[in-house]
Simulated scan of single mutants.
Amino acid sequence: MHFLSLQSHVAYGYVGNRAATFPLQRLGHEVWAVNTVEFSNHTGYGAWRGRVAPADQVGDIVHGIEALGLLKRCDALLTGYVGDAALADVVLDTARRVREANPRAVWCCDPVLGDVDTGLYVRPGIDAFFRERAIPACDLVTPNHFELEHLTGRTVATLDDALAAARMLLAGPKLALITSLRRTDAPAEQVEMLAVGREAAWRIATPLIGFDVAPNGTGDAVAALFSAHWIESGDVAFALGKAASSIFAVLEATRAAGERELQLVAAQDRLVAPPRRFVAEAL
């Protein structure tokens, strides 16, 4: 398959396009990566260098890809971190162009806003863009626990809370994938993902791997992996199982190496063929 991916880029580490591109390529897919920011490292380190890509630059790159006649071959659009509200129109315009060229293309929108340990870390207006414009227009939305609460204005403490909040996002998307769900009515030593559609839902749980500093980019990698498996197979439960098993294997390797950054390259064989398989259950 062919993916057009509008996400952040870091020279060091694995978030955004750096977390999505290699896993997709390792699965055999082509990725056309367009960077919305160019940073030395992700902002979780507290200091970084680089800048947000100008909106016209990002748009020009997309137009160049379109001029080659490639958008008709695009199977999926991945969008993630939007560094500036000026990029919002570019993201929406790109989605429109992709769908005009290939009406079967799937838009996976990862509404990157923040996390439970950092709070909101995007510029003003980005959350409103995702809530009011991007999510209603996409096919798949992939918030983490914090983002689900922020986007819906609901506290998510239980499974019922999570299901109800996820369904609030389905006015446009066919499916919501909730990553890194931690709820009070589940064992503390596990972490879950939920895939919630309009008529069905699936849950998968993996053991919680402890880190002194949790690696960033896990959600970016999961969104890419799940999208690829879902589009290719059409089977939500299968895609959920594959994505959860792969990211668990990568996180195990990351902890074993004592590294802060996801060990996607070192664990690439485990990413493709995870030694431990997890199976999603229908709810």
Results as ranks from 00 to 15, higher is better:
263 Q>K: 14
116 V>S: 14
196 V>A: 10
152 T>S: 04
68 L>T: 07
61 I>M: 14
164 A>G: 07
267 A>H: 02
85 A>D: 03
182 R>Y: 12
9 H>S: 09
247 I>G: 02
54 P>C: 04
52 V>T: 15
259 E>L: 03
65 I>E: 08
154 R>D: 11
24 L>Q: 10
183 R>M: 14
80 G>I: 05
164 A>V: 12
216 N>H: 15
44 G>C: 10
230 W>I: 01
74 C>Q: 04
160 D>H: 13
275 P>I: 05
273 A>R: 07
221 A>G: 12
249 A>H: 07
242 K>S: 14
253 A>M: 02
61 I>F: 13
138 C>Q: 03
220 D>V: 07
220 D>N: 12
261 E>G: 03
26 R>Y: 10
127 D>V: 15
40 S>E: 10
33 A>D: 04
233 S>I: 04
170 L>H: 12
210 G>E: 11
162 A>S: 11
266 A>E: 13
205 A>W: 00
104 R>L: 11
12 Y>C: 08
234 G>I: 12
121 Y>V: 15
33 A>F: 01
16 G>D: 09
80 G>N: 05
41 N>F: 09
183 R>G: 10
5 S>L: 08
181 L>A: 15
279 V>R: 13
1 M>S: 13
244 A>T: 07
114 G>R: 04
256 A>P: 00
110 D>M: 11
12 Y>H: 14
229 H>Q: 13
271 L>D: 00
224 A>V: 02
211 F>Y: 11
190 Q>D: 08
103 P>Y: 03
50 G>N: 02
85 A>P: 03
78 L>M: 11
158 T>R: 11
132 E>S: 13
236 V>Y: 00
87 L>Y: 01
125 G>A: 08
188 A>F: 08
22 F>A: 07
229 H>S: 04
189 E>H: 14
177 L>W: 01
153 G>I: 09
189 E>N: 15
109 C>L: 06
209 I>C: 02
136 P>E: 11
190 Q>Y: 09
206 T>V: 15
56 D>C: 05
